[in-house]
């Protein structure tokens, strides 16, 4: 079965970059411009394996999105990876405590993303 991923970022360019990388890994990717829209997609019955989540977005932040998702046991298998310009260790700590599985600081490159996904058991052939 095709794996599905959500890319949640208010920057269209970032959504395109991340979707491209996940697409290469075989994911079917859906984009959302903030946490609220992403929650709507999930609540509409979308089954996803992975979500890449920006922190600062209008309407609902990535942090609040993680908190909301982790309230629901039906999303337990959804891996949540923060991809954000927030680089304070306290932010990272907060995100992990809220239920994020991994955390990537921007700027990042494709290899860094793949290495972090590898930590979650998501494999890719690294050059």
């Amino acid at each position: 079965m095709t794996k599905k991923a959500l890319v949640i970022d208010d920057s269209r360019a970032m959504r395109t970059i991340l979707s491209g990388i996940l697409g290469e890994l075989g994911y079917e990717v859906q984009g959302a411009e903030d946490g609220g829209r992403a929650l709507e997609i999930l609540n509409a019955g979308g089954l996803f394996d992975l979500a890449l989540v920006d922190w600062n977005m209008p309407q609902m932040t990535g942090y609040d999105f993680v908190l909301e998702v982790r309230k629901e046991t039906r999303f337990n298998d959804l891996r949540l990876v923060m991809v954000t310009t927030e680089t304070e260790v306290s932010r990272m700590s907060d995100a992990l405590e809220a239920g994020a599985d991994e955390y990537i600081m921007k700027p990042f490159n494709k290899e860094m993303l793949l290495e972090k996904l590898m930590l979650l058991g998501i494999e890719a052939e690294l050059d």
């Binding site: 680089t87 304070e88 260790v89 990272m92 700590s93 995100a95 992990l96 994020a100 991994e102 955390y103 990537i104 600081m105 990042f108 290899e111 860094m112 290495e115 972090k116 590898m118 930590l119």
Partner: peptide, 23 residues
């Protein structure tokens, strides 16, 4: 550097075993 801890290091270990001084 940030670039170095952003590579391959599980975030929970970064939080647990490092102190941040700026970048």
């Amino acid at each position: 550097k940030q670039l170095e801890v952003n590579r391959g290091l599980p975030a929970h270990l970064l939080v647990r075993y490092f102190d941040q001084h700026g970048a």
